[in-house]
Design a protein around this nucleic acid. Sequence first.
DNA 1: GTACTTGTTAAACT
DNA 2: TAGTTTAACAAGTA
Length: 281
Amino acid sequence: MPELPEVETIASRLRQVLPGKTVASATIMKEKSFIGDVKHLYNQEIISIGRRAKIITIQLANNYYLLIHLKMTGQLLYVDSQRRIGGGHPTADWVAALPNKHTRIVLTLSDKTNVFFNDQRIFGWIKLVSASDVSNEFSSYGPDINSVEASFSYFQKKAKARSVSIKQFLLDGSVLAGIGNIYACDALNLAQVSPFRSVNDLDTDELQRVLHASKSVIQRGIDTGGASIENYVGADGLSGTYQHHVLVYKREGQDCYNCGTTIRKEKIGGRGTYFCPNCQK
DNA sequence: GTACTTGTTAAACT
DNA sequence: TAGTTTAACAAGTA
């Protein structure tokens, strides 16, 4: 599942290759996957690539923005004109066969390179909005977990006003943006805090550990190119490696790296939650 | 065939 | 009113 590190990895790669190119055409193979008026897209130069929360932003010369949310199974793949394997930049061989049955949108650029939006479950989307609408799109999000705005004073203030579990609190995008299930589970293991604890019951030290651990696992995710669990791949079709560094996520029945106790899985707020019943108090 | 998976939001509920 | 819970979305896997 693409969370902040996975989306950041894709955005970083697109930033290397897209700016300066012009959008020649867009093929919408699934209506549900595209929102907005596609006419504002044609013949527009790509100015810059950004990321906010789990959304990739592509700024166009006419000051419209493409916003891309991968949700759970989305992929964004960049394929150069030669479609060479390993031609300059390493690329997975299957991207040469795109589009495939999960391709929903294809952007063709002026130099004949393509950006393929694949999405197995069709929850993701690409929106084309004007500059004035961009802030609206992000109005309900809290600060990105890896930003300076995600300070301890902010985190503690929000935590005091809530009674949900710390696990649900971390997944609440209106508090902090970018954290999904993988990194929420790992952050709580690293912080040695039980996912069942109510946020307003955590003391200052525990809250500090949770915030620090959250920033830490997210940074590790970025440094390792994301977690390729389920469908995630980078813009070149290659996997990240965070899945090899996972602390508890999907490790039910295995030993906790910290204390050796068997990792358990239970549902919290309807979501699978992996934790160590011994060292996460 | 049934249960389960998840990011986000809308609706339902307290 | 606002915080919390649940359902819904979709398509694949176990």
